[in-house]
Design a protein around this nucleic acid. Structure first.
Lengths: 283, 283
DNA sequence: TAGTGGTCTAGACCACCGT
DNA sequence: CGGTGGTCTAGACCACTAA
């Protein structure tokens, strides 16, 4: 294949359409692979074809495929395992399980956490509406309070890029960390994408929320952005968290996106920081 | 040079000592370059030698140097500029100036900020004890309230890895965002490293705090980690921020490190989030 | 042992920048 | 134009994993 010219598909692949022409070859390859992931041709947890296989399939050198996969790995879409292969990443894997949970107990990792090596999260099946598991040394327990379908409030519709009045699923749940009620999450999801999502389905599922969305609804959360404010606890929130109304809480608003930067979740978390803190690395 | 064996220094470079032997060649090269940066042989804003130059100097292929520099660039230690060269990154550069400031006005970037392309921060010299400048579309003004030397409190000494009782510099400053007092920063620095740092020096300097530490004291902040809590504003803090005592504030504790992960700053920021929020990207 | 990702090389050519 | 980083190739060898 010529070096920088537009990629011409061979028989084994879907046509690449609205791509930025004249992108470097490795980006075109990256984009082709991403499309396959998005289409679900290669599923979370499974290996993608080997570098040599992809190289011959796309008629480029292995080095080019390598660079494409390097970026996919940097984007956390894929995980390389030496000697084994390259795997579609999944919220089910221990290493990426609570990738988006930034709340840490205050005692944890006094200095930089650097690598910390999470002690492998073994799952314990919980009672109805709950699941208990260990993550980063802390015991995590999730209890679903509510799951209902409703017409999207204007604000939610805007964020999720829905027409106003379209239906959304609202989930409210309580997170216990070390036995303390710590986070109240209010989650909104596009109704169309998560058709069969019910309170019962959630109750019977033990495991990370995003893992359920991934395995049951084929929607993988890729990336998210958060906005954090300090607020006084509203009465209703305080009640659920067993706190006095008005105590300071972290209000964490999160927009999560799948492939192509499609927003598919809006979440508002109300967090006590009496025994925990929000952790962040700057670089 | 043989492929994976230990690197043997040639005449042009300091001996590599306590390095993890049997690291890949490119990491050894990376480490050699890092040492040069740390030693100040190549200064912030200046170019480092070209890839071909480094390749011949270290007697490795250009590809290997390239991979080393790729990582340095990913670590933000260095910035590549096509056609020009590779430059030691600096807190003076517009693009990295307020790299660590995560507070955004609420209206800014309704959706993902993605790339946003900050509109180039032109500096305006301010009155004594202050500097006004524009960053990411918001007007930022810093006012030094206090700068004194003191014996390190136990907690500070621990974080900065000093012997208890060693002297530290404490700086207190107020950040105005869009004319609103928004953040009160309490900063502790190791006294030994920042010997000539005085209130006057700070007052006469217009520009980012870290840029001053970099240019005047040769200490570059590489990386930081933050812990965030929601707290009720202490009376003293509230007074400075023109708020009522007890209103919810973000308390952001930051530990910043230089090369070799040496901690060199502890900072506690008290932030109102009435008109701003803390922004974070998860991936 | 065969297959995978990881490292290293050498050389070609391109895109961009300043002079 | 010459020099810099950016892309692409082809091939060799290493390290790790699983059968």
């Amino acid at each position: 294949m010529a070096s920088t010219v537009a990629y011409t598909p061979d028989e084994t692949d879907a046509v690449p359409q609205a791509e930025p022409r004249f992108a470097p070859l490795y980006r075109q390859i990256k984009s082709l692979i991403t499309k396959r992931l998005q289409a679900g041709d290669w599923k979370p947890g499974e290996p993608i074809p080997s570098e040599t296989e992809l190289a011959s399939r796309y008629k480029v050198s292995q080095g080019t495929v390598r660079k494409a996969i390097d970026e996919l790995a940097a984007d956390n879409l894929v995980v390389r395992k030496q000697g084994r292969g390259t795997f579609v990443s999944s919220h089910l894997e221990v290493r990426t399980q609570f990738r988006f949970l930034r709340l840490r107990p205050d005692e944890y990792g006094q200095d930089d956490v650097s690598d910390a090596g999470a002690p492998g999260g073994e799952f314990q099946r919980g009672a109805v509406s709950s699941a208990g598991r260990s993550v980063q040394g802390q015991v995590l327990r999730s209890q679903v309070l509510e799951c209902r379908r409703m017409r999207a409030p204007a604000e939610i519709a805007r964020v999720l890029q829905l027409r106003s009045g379209e239906t959304v699923v609202q989930v409210r749940r309580l997170l216990d960390l070390e036995g303390q009620p710590t986070v109240l999450d209010e989650i909104w999801l596009p109704g169309a994408r998560f058709r069969g999502l019910t309170a019962e389905r959630l109750a019977n599922y033990s495991g990370p929320f995003y893992a359920l969305l991934e395995t049951e609804f084929g929607t993988r959360m890729i990336r998210a952005s958060e906005r954090i404010k300090a607020v006084a606890a509203p009465a209703e929130v305080a009640r659920v968290l067993h706190l006095k109304a008005g105590v300071p809480l972290l209000r964490v608003d999160r927009v999560s996106v799948t492939y192509e930067d499609q927003p598919v979740e809006f979440r508002r978390g109300w967090c006590t920081t009496e025994r925990h803190h929000y952790f962040n690395e700057l670089s």
